[in-house]
Write a protein that binds this DNA or RNA. Structure first.
Lengths: 80, 80, 80, 80
DNA sequence: ACGTTTGCGCTTTAGC
DNA sequence: GCTAAAGCGCAAACGT
């Protein structure tokens, strides 16, 4: 077995791992769509729901930024 | 317990399910990044790998589209 | 005339240029719709036509991507 | 020359007209991008500009809806 | 005519 | 920081 083949196999395995993960990711995205659809069938407006999710994520992100800054300060001051 | 609270709880549960799924999705996206990083540390070029992944996906889509055209033709011609 | 007015005028001009271009774009999109309608009145199936247009575009993209991968390989291997 | 050829030619012409129009459309879309880039190089924030364009379009759309309702009423009442 | 579903454009995010 | 690609939201198109 040539070395080139070993390398090719290794590369192929990496590619396949990536493709497998991306399939999983797509499956979860589909699950999200399903939840929105289920909520809609229960009388909730998906569009508003998406806005809520986005707002909560933004707030979470802002909070994380604050935490990161705080962490930086603590490290700088040796208060870890 | 007011009915409004029940509805609010139901909505909150939907939102939380969505947020949980999106966290999972992000986790998988991070896994993908890790695989690219691991491949890179084994001497493979991530840029080329990404191109290959994209190319394979495009080819798959093209094949699916070709099949769909044929199927539609058959239906249009009553050859189902 | 205040400087703020100059800036406001400049911004307004940019916005108007964009809106003008988007109107043109919409006009062309309508032209496309007209062609599909005309073809349909001549007995062609718009659905199949759309699939063909999409397929040809996808194949063009696939070809471009193949070329890009090859080019990147050549560069990576110093075969430019 | 067989009739099938005539039909095929006609279909091909429709397809080519559509593809030509879509190229034009893409060209205009690129022009829009250029304007945003030019505005940005003049110190304006493209993201905010896009919001403005969207708002103005929504208002225009709302106005159009109102006009359409009015038109419907006029027709219904024979006040055209 | 309406509801559903797919395709297109935009926004955002990730890589360089 | 900028460019390009992937994901998302919306709107038009198809089927009922």
């Amino acid at each position: 077995m040539a070395e080139g083949t070993v390398a090719a196999d290794q590369l192929r395995l990496f590619i396949e791992r990536i493709e497998r993960l991306e399939e999983e990711k797509k499956g979860i995205a589909d699950d999200v769509k399903d939840v929105y659809a289920e909520a809609k069938s229960n009388g909730y407006d998906p569009k508003i729901m998406r806005m809520i999710v986005r707002l909560r994520r933004m707030e979470a992100h802002t909070r994380q930024e604050q935490d990161a800054v705080l962490e930086t300060y603590r490290n700088a001051l040796g208060l870890a």
